[in-house]
Amino acid sequence: MTLVLDQRRPASRALALARKVNVAVIVFLVLYLAIGLLQPTYFEPAGLMNFLRRAAPLAILSAGQLFVLASGGFDLSVGSLITLTVIGGSMLTANDPSRTWWAIAALYGVGLAVGLINGAVVAFLKTPSIIATLGTLLSVNGAAMMWSGGAPRGYLPDNFRMFGRLVLHDVPIVKIFPIAIAVLAVCGALAYWGFHGAVFGRRILAVGDNPRAAELSGVRVRSVRIGVFVISALAAVTAGIMLGGFGGVSVDVGLGLELQSIAACVVGGVQLMGGRGSVTGAIAGALTLFALFTLLTLLGLPQPLKETAQGLILIAAVALGAWRRRRAV
């Protein structure tokens, strides 16, 4: 889908977008229905709130990953950045609540630096982002372990953990309201504005679609590239703060989340190699993936077969997307 096409036929673009989003949302709803039939507590407001709370970090991570994917790149470093955030949080706060806020600021600083490095390596050294962020994955993981000597040195104070853990009780209608959902809503809205509202989002899609053409039409491709990696890294820090909050200190919290976030985006209809995607799709994809994990657990499937199911669904989602595109052409 090119920009030219967008201007000429906005209606068909909206229709295509709606159709695409609907798939992930519909699949999610079907899966959630199945979950609820197996375990009725998921139909209660508290059950739904708890589900969203657990899925929130992956959803935020996927929304960040979306920016990089839409620009045509990949960010493999987010998982180890999450680990660094949790370990770093415990090192910086050392269970002292008064240090929480500057610790969080420092962690976002670290995220900013990692994002800038990723972006600069891709934009200026022209290293393909898979390799560049693979390098960062290794280095960031090593740095986290070096910093902590292999084991985190402190606990996370309660006010740090609130973003992932605190639940407000006796809230009207929904009964309980986890703060994590508020964080997800804010991040989702920010991402939506950045991707669909601001000019920046259109530039990302233009760069992902055809960087040469984007450059000729005046887009500063390098700035866009650096920008998307920064956004992804900041999303990873946010997800790290929430995961550390939900579960507490551990050393392998981010393991494998980079591929899960890419998978979530793919399920949500985001096109790898850039040019197409939506925030709704990324978040719905994350929820779908999470619902799938929950459903497979409830079904009592042996752990390994969950991987198999995930693999089949990934391939099916992309094959379906490719098939529709070919049919559309």
Binding site: R54, P57, L243, F246, G247, G248, V249, S250, D252, V253, L255
Partner: peptide, 8 residues
């Protein structure tokens, strides 16, 4: 061995 998963 994952905290978040254990809690869930």
């Amino acid at each position: 061995g994952d905290n978040a998963k254990t809690k869930s």
